[in-house]
Amino acid sequence: MNDERTLKIREIAKELLSKGEIAVFIGYGKGTCNGKARPIFVRTPEEADELIFDSTCSNNLVTYLKFPAVRDEGVVGIVVKGCDAKALVGLIRESQLMREQVRIVAVTCEGVVADDGQLQLRCQYCDVANPTFYDFLVGSPVEDQKPRDFSGLLEKYETMSVEERWEFWQSQFEKCIRCYACRQACPLCYCTRCIVEKNQPQWIETSSHLRGNFAWNIIRAFHLAGRCAGCGACEDACPVDIPLMLLNYKLEKEIWDYFHYRVDLDPESVPPFTTFKTDDRGEFIL
């Protein structure tokens, strides 16, 4: 069952750890439920034999890099798929991580599966199956570079009347229990004091009530606009199954249509919401 990527990852981790080039290696190990892989932290060359890689390695390990406690251990080795790499580059782009703080083991990826064994939604739109940002590349090239075209997915919602759409989202956000799992799981939601915790003034109501739920979910999505890596961690983490990726994809589409920008693997690329240009399109301003 061990595919060649597993062996290669173990080899790299062992080498980095034994040479002392890294303090910790974050990868995937065998899980205990559903046969699904789980994240593991490896600190000795011996432990590296627990590392695996297969199609159940769905989690985005980059999320751990947003925690100072992890970074403080020293240089971190980490396994990333293309989608995860976008998040990692995002952290570098946003000055949360320095390139030399990580040794990146990127894997080529034909898609990973959800708990139910189905291919993850995001993998149907993957444009980074062969990652280009890494120290080590593992796995042979895969052919699968898919167009990032969400129109089929979004059409159903975009053609709804405003009332219908409002009702749809109301029924979704009603479920939100404000556990903030989406935020915790998101590699790019790293503020030490999140806006929802600011109470002078309190823009977002914190009790689990429809009004505050709307505000929270929409502001979360907007704060990720032009930044979201599309890794799906938020939606996977949501215990009440709110289709958060619909919001994320919609914003990605809008930003592409408006500004021709898409999150990529280049730390120098400039997200449109972080620039000021006098020639920005402004027809939406009255």
């Binding site: 946003e94 949360q96 030490t192 972080t274 000021f276």
Partner: peptide, 14 residues
């Protein structure tokens, strides 16, 4: 105390 240092403002400031 709460600035997270993403420096987006630095880029955006005209």
């Amino acid at each position: 105390a709460t600035c997270i240092g993403c420096f987006y403002c630095l880029r955006a400031c005209p």
